[in-house]
């Protein structure tokens, strides 16, 4: 991927603020003092070796994981154990998973309209129109009435993206969206995500696709052992990383 860097303007609004976040799994300290501020329209790529805490970090943002210390503020709402806050934040934050997690008992269209119908309480016809619009955007409107089990991995992941977009989220989280895909299908998903970035979506993406990071990201974050080791714009990050650990990591994933 050598496309020119996608240009865009960042909004003034701070969409996500993470302050001094810590998390433990039992005795194990998985996240250590994470601090991050994300502005509207900003695209952030998180990378790092497995077990570095990058997935856990973004899963804390919509409370699929609970943090035990520190503060997370999403779209001016602080994440606490108050279910109302959690659900309010989840309405505004879309998420795409490594294993798609489409609902296999519902058709593609029903997958896309479920949350708008039951969470946003949008009339059915309107929800279906919105869903078809997004299925068009991810280029699979003809699959609307099929079940997820009948689609390829790449198609399923694109449905998952459309499903998340149907809630008209302000922020999109991607948790290794291309890691479970066959190599031939990675591009179609990445192209969809690039399209999304072009529209100015605020995105946090855990990925090993460094080409994607180079083209799309405003900032690249490198994590290891539960800490943010390095955070920089992609040019600096790839050409002159500061820490030895980052150099080692980049050396391993770029030269194979």
């Amino acid at each position: 991927m050598n496309e020119a860097k996608i240009k865009h303007a960042l909004g003034e609004k701070e969409m996500i603020r993470i302050e001094g976040m810590h998390k433990w799994y039992g005795e194990f300290h998985v996240l250590k003092d994470i601090n991050l501020s994300v502005r509207q329209g900003e695209r952030i790529v998180l990378c790092g070796p497995s077990g570095s805490g990058k997935s856990t970090t973004i899963r804390c943002i919509n409370r699929l994981e609970e943090h035990q210390q520190g503060k997370i503020i999403v779209d001016d709402v602080e994440l606490t154990s108050d279910l109302k806050h959690v659900e309010a934040i989840r309405r505004e934050v879309g998420m795409v998973f490594q294993h798609f997690n489409l609902f296999p008992h519902l058709t593609v269209l029903e997958n896309c309209t479920l949350a708008p119908l039951w969470v946003r309480k949008i009339p059915k016809r309107e929800a279906e129109e919105v869903a078809m619009e997004y299925l068009n955007r991810v280029k699979i409107p003809e699959q609307a009435h099929k079940y997820p089990g009948q689609l390829s991995g790449g198609q399923q992941q694109r449905v998952a993206i459309a499903r998340a977009l149907c809630m008209k989220p302000k922020i999109m989280l991607f948790d290794e969206p291309t890691s479970a895909l066959d190599p031939e299908m990675v591009k179609e998903v990445l192209d969809t995500m690039i399209g999304l970035a072009e529209d100015g979506m605020t995105m946090l993406c855990v990925t090993h696709e460094m080409g994607f990071a180079r083209t799309v990201a405003d900032r690249v974050i490198f994590m290891d052992k539960g800490e943010i080791v390095e955070m920089a714009d992609p040019e600096t990050f790839f050409s002159s990383p500061k820490s030895e650990r980052t150099k080692l990591f980049l050396g391993q994933i770029l030269n194979h």
Binding site: N62, L64, R90, R91, G94, N101, F103, L114, A115
Partner: peptide, 25 residues
């Protein structure tokens, strides 16, 4: 677990998650 997570991540509460996603399956 991913089904629970996907349903939760889109803002479905407990009863809707169970009634619309988990129990039908």
């Amino acid at each position: 677990k991913g089904q629970y997570e996907a349903a939760g991540a889109m803002g479905l509460g407990y009863w809707r998650m169970m009634g619309l996603v988990i129990l039908p399956q």
